[in-house]
């Protein structure tokens, strides 16, 4: 079985090597794996560092947003003919050791999508982020009709079928909600898996700002109207 690990990265010089090196060398059930860093127009040395750390770097010449980078990653997974694709954040907030659990759920339990849910440490999540997350869960439910406890998680696993069937277009963070919509539209079998979140000063500063929720909601509504 082939595994593609997709890491969208924008100016992640301080953490990218650590994230790549923390990915387990051997994963049960996986015979071949490739780490794809989607360097989303970084202005620092993210791409060079990632390449030196042994990853395959796909470079966006201009910053396009995390959604666009994720779509590029999923396209790469198709080209690589991966049986499983896993997305993970580049800021070090996820524990790559948990990749094995996701693989296990897709291989043994035959789930099409596994969503890493940061519920285990909701109390440790900065309050403003927790509020933004809660708000986005409801917005996602209102627009796409599927309730998930952590709709904005960047740690996800996809089966080959899911990679093939997801029709994603969003360029920014709204892609997280769009994925939930696509799970519902394609009737994909999914599960939420509690994950550990590593909150460092760096990872707390990265990711979405709560005010961005307004922007995401607007984009999702426009997308819905123009559909």
């Amino acid at each position: 079985m082939k595994l593609a690990i997709l890491i969208p990265a924008f100016n992640e010089e301080p953490t990218i090597t650590k994230v790549i090196k923390a990915i387990p060398k051997k994963i049960v059930g996986i015979s071949e794996k490739e780490i794809f860093i989607i360097d989303d127009g970084s202005e620092d040395r993210t791409g060079i560092i990632a390449r030196n750390a042994g990853a395959m770097v796909l470079t966006h010449l201009v910053n396009q947003g995390v959604g666009a980078a994720t779509i590029t990653g999923l396209e790469a997974a198709k080209l690589y003919d991966a049986d499983i694709a896993i997305t993970i954040d580049a800021d070090g907030q996820h524990d790559p050791k948990e990749i094995e659990k996701i693989v296990n759920l897709i291989v043994k339990k035959k789930y099409d999508v596994v969503i890493g849910s940061r519920l285990l440490q909701r109390k440790e999540m900065p309050k403003f982020k927790a509020f933004g997350n809660f708000l986005m869960n409801w917005v996602t439910y209102a627009i796409y009709g599927l309730w998930v406890k952590d709709s904005q998680s960047g740690f996800k696993g996809f089966s080959k079928k899911a990679v093939r069937e997801l029709n994603l277009t969003c360029r920014g963070y709204e892609i997280c909600s769009e994925i939930i919509g696509e799970i519902n539209r394609n009737n994909l079998k999914f599960v939420e898996m509690p994950i550990k979140t590593i909150y460092t000063e760096y990872s707390k500063k990265r990711g979405q700002y709560p005010l961005n929720a307004v922007n995401i909601v607007l984009k999702l509504i426009i997308k819905l109207i123009l559909k």
Binding site: M56, A68, L226
Partner: peptide, 26 residues
């Protein structure tokens, strides 16, 4: 603007995947 943005994104993605298409891993 939306159409232009989409075309631009597609172009950026095509360029990003160029190296992969010619690489050994695929």
């Amino acid at each position: 603007a939306h159409r232009q943005e989409k075309q631009f994104s597609r172009l950026i993605r095509k360029i990003a995947l160029m190296d992969l298409k010619s690489s050994k891993i695929v």
